[in-house]
């Protein structure tokens, strides 16, 4: 048998390989098929190549050992986010502490998962929730279904809904994943000032 070290898996009956060897697994060739010098040269190439590759690989390892770690020590330490991270939604307030949301339903219309539910109501002079005529009496986001695509944030004409950085919403109870307006809403400015 010749070339026992070469396992050619491209040559199979009924399949045209075009004579090209692919996916060949290389072993030390101990057969007598090649002349001695060629066999030795080949073996030395193998050994030096392997040593070189190891050195290259460990160079990265040792270099990285002296770099600061990028992994976060969660949950022992707080997680750091990029600014545009799309986490749990936050409903914003304006500078007067009124809700920015005017219940235009555009977020619900844009939502591909159909997870936003809104009930609108009219502001009155004694009961003012938002700056415009209408406000969201009920604003629910169903996090069972939300895919955090950010379309709602893009659709919002009032910059009322934004992505916060919250992400710890795993739950054993699906019902708890339907977040209500009270959970999504930013704290009023006065309350936020208090410790």
């Amino acid at each position: 048998m010749k070339n026992i070290g070469i396992r050619d898996d491209t040559v199979r009956p009924g399949r045209s390989s075009g004579g090209r060897r692919r996916n060949a697994v290389f072993y030390f060739d101990l057969s007598e098929a090649l002349p001695y010098t060629e066999r030795m040269a080949k073996m030395l190439r193998e050994v030096t190549g392997t040593v070189g590759a190891l050195a290259k690989g460990f160079a990265v390892t040792f270099k990285t050992m002296f770099r600061p770690a990028v992994t976060e020590n969660y949950p022992a330490e707080p997680v750091h986010f990029e600014g545009r991270y799309r986490g749990l939604h936050v409903l914003r307030r304006d500078e007067n502490g009124l809700e920015k949301c005017v219940a235009c339903f555009l977020c619900a219309a844009a939502c591909p998962a159909n997870c936003i539910y809104i009930e609108a109501a009219e502001n009155t002079s004694d009961h003012r929730i938002s700056a415009a005529e209408r406000y969201a009496k009920v604003y629910n986001i169903d996090y069972n279904r939300c895919i955090f695509c950010g379309y709602c944030v893009e659709a919002c004409p009032c910059d009322a809904i934004t992505h916060g950085h919250g992400f710890e919403i795993a739950s054993y109870d699906m019902n708890g994943l339907v977040y209500r307006k009270e959970q999504l809403l930013e704290k009023p400015p006065a309350a936020a000032a208090k410790p």
Partner: peptide, 9 residues
């Protein structure tokens, strides 16, 4: 109907 909902809802 005022401020209750939107037509596509």
């Amino acid at each position: 109907y005022r401020y209750k909902t939107r037509p596509w809802e």
